[in-house]
Simulated assay, not measured.
Amino acid sequence: EAATKYFIIQAAASSLILFSSIMNAWHTGTWNITQLSTYPSTITLTIALSMKLGLAPMHFWLPEVMQGTTLSSALIITTWQKLPPMSLLLMTTNHLPPLALLTMAIVSILVGGWSGLNQIQMRKIMAFSSIAHLGWMMAILTMSQKLAILTLLIYMMMTSSLFLIMISTSTKTFKDMSQLWTISPTLTTTCMLTLMSLGGLPPLIGFLPKWFILKELTNNHLILTAIIMAIFSLLSLMFYMRLTYTATLTISPNTTNSMMKWRFKPTNIT
């Protein structure tokens, strides 16, 4: 089911990209997608790339697809699969509508934070985290491409770290996160730092791109936008802190001699 949803969404987005190229070629006589000159083609391309990335309001497929896949596939979807659409956005950023990108950015930060508050599945939480972080990238894309790339790289690094911890410990839900300490205290500490970094708490590395983005928005006289984004990011910080609390501050006061979780991987008995 998840594979079918992913295929349909990606195929539809690819068709829209091709349709945008056809419209641009019809008006300009060139197939170069980096030289979009008509408003319909730029809007169509923006919608298509938003669908591929999972930006709000075209984000509905991302949490469901990630919940229906394995942790390894979810890691690929949230990191590696973001590179092709982001590359196209960076190539065409001079022709894309800034107001549309900024609006989608603010909506994505709001939706990513608000929708992640009530989730108990780790893959869905990471999906909404992806949506919120993509909002920060879109907000700065038309002003500073280097800063957008920096934000993407830091996001991919932190998300990969968290997913690798989840894969190595078979953590899929909040309940599993509360039992993470029984496997490895070191991984628990690393998980805590990664989550707080994703939330953007200083002095961790996740604070760096958000600080630079807010500073760049302020320099471009978008003070109200910067304030709104900073306020909406508190929603994301809330569920990151919930995860941090669950993973590190709900440790049982009793000592245990077992370093295994109370759930075993299924094994084939032959």
Rank of each mutant, 00 (worst) to 15 (best):
E1Q: 10
A3E: 10
K5R: 13
I8W: 05
A11L: 14
A12Q: 08
S14I: 11
L16A: 10
I17G: 04
S20N: 09
S21W: 01
G29C: 08
T34F: 07
Q35A: 10
L36Q: 15
Y39R: 14
T42W: 02
T44V: 13
L45N: 01
L45T: 00
A48V: 12
L49C: 11
P57M: 07
M58W: 14
H59L: 08
H59T: 09
W61I: 02
P63Q: 03
E64I: 06
Q67K: 09
G68F: 03
T69P: 02
S73N: 13
L75P: 07
I76P: 02
Q81K: 13
K82T: 03
L88K: 06
L89D: 01
L89P: 01
L90A: 14
T93K: 15
H95Y: 11
P98G: 08
A100H: 03
A100N: 06
L101P: 13
L102R: 06
T103K: 01
T103H: 01
S108K: 05
V111N: 00
G113I: 02
W114V: 07
R123L: 14
R123K: 15
K124T: 04
S129F: 02
S129E: 07
G135R: 02
M138D: 01
M138I: 08
A139D: 01
L152N: 01
Y155E: 06
M156W: 10
M158F: 04
T159H: 11
S161K: 05
F163P: 15
M166W: 11
I167F: 04
T171N: 08
T171D: 04
T173Q: 10
F174G: 00
F174M: 15
F174W: 12
I183M: 12
P185L: 09
L187Y: 12
T190H: 08
C191I: 00
M192C: 12
M192W: 03
L193A: 12
M196Q: 00
P202N: 05
P203Q: 08
L204V: 06
I205Q: 09
F207G: 11
K210G: 07
W211N: 09
F212G: 01
I213E: 03
L217S: 02
N220V: 02
L222Q: 15
L224T: 15
A226M: 08
A226W: 07
L234P: 03
L237F: 12
Y240T: 05
Y240A: 04
R242F: 09
L243D: 03
Y245K: 15
Y245R: 14
A247P: 00
T250N: 15
P253L: 13
T255F: 06
T255C: 01
N257E: 12
S258E: 14
S258V: 08
M259R: 13
M259T: 14
M260V: 08
F264G: 09
K265V: 09
K265C: 04
K265M: 12
P266Q: 11
N268K: 12
I269G: 03
I269A: 10
